[in-house]
Amino acid sequence: MEKVITVRNLVKKFGSFVANDHLNFDVYQGEIFGFLGANGAGKTTAMKILCGLSSPTSGEAKVAGFDIYRETEKVKRNIGYMSQKFSLYEDLTVAENIRFFSGIYGIPPASRKVKQEKLLKDLGLESAKDSLIGSLPLGWKQKLAFSVAIFHDPKIVFLDEPTGGVDPITRRKFWDLIYGAADRGITVFVTTHYMDEAEYCNRVSIMNNGRIEALDTPENLKKQYSAKNMDEVFLKIAR
């Protein structure tokens, strides 16, 4: 399988605090890769480095085949990102947000319109096309933010705690979108707090104090730590 992310000895320090301590892992094309860890374990820091939002202190990483130091702009063309802070423009309508972000990625208006119609239809949000984002319920906003993040068909999409603050049913529906993206061949790199969501991933890594303590499929991890579910695995590692 093709590797779309390779990380070798990645270190990020803030002063004397080590947020990422020699991370090593690979992510393969088309998989859903769960990035787990307690608050402050260093998940978001690592993700921001891979997205080019932050530069590492040392180590190497390639995203979509491009070096994160030297080929930042090429990396950015090939990734999508959805932050834990909801980040579409609240004072623009759904259609205006799509138009703006498509414009930045250089998607021509004709294909934008086709894709936009399909997107809204798939989400069942045709009626919300001209509503301001700020007026929509959180669950809808998150679905839209995800759809906008993959609108330009990136190789990889990074999701930073995408389902914070919504009910289990909405979360379940959100994961349907994630599966849909993975089926289209988009690699999904997702951080989460919810252990039921960890079960949906092909492979998960669990971080603690800036280090990756475990990395495998959910089944193997449960066997390895003789746990009934991911919850127990997580508690055994993070203590």
Binding site: L53, K76, R77, K85, S87, E90, F101, F158
Partner: peptide
């Protein structure tokens, strides 16, 4: 609003 982060991951 956090939109700056969204922009910073784009190739703009």
């Amino acid at each position: 609003q956090g939109t700056i982060e969204q922009l910073n991951v784009t190739p703009i």
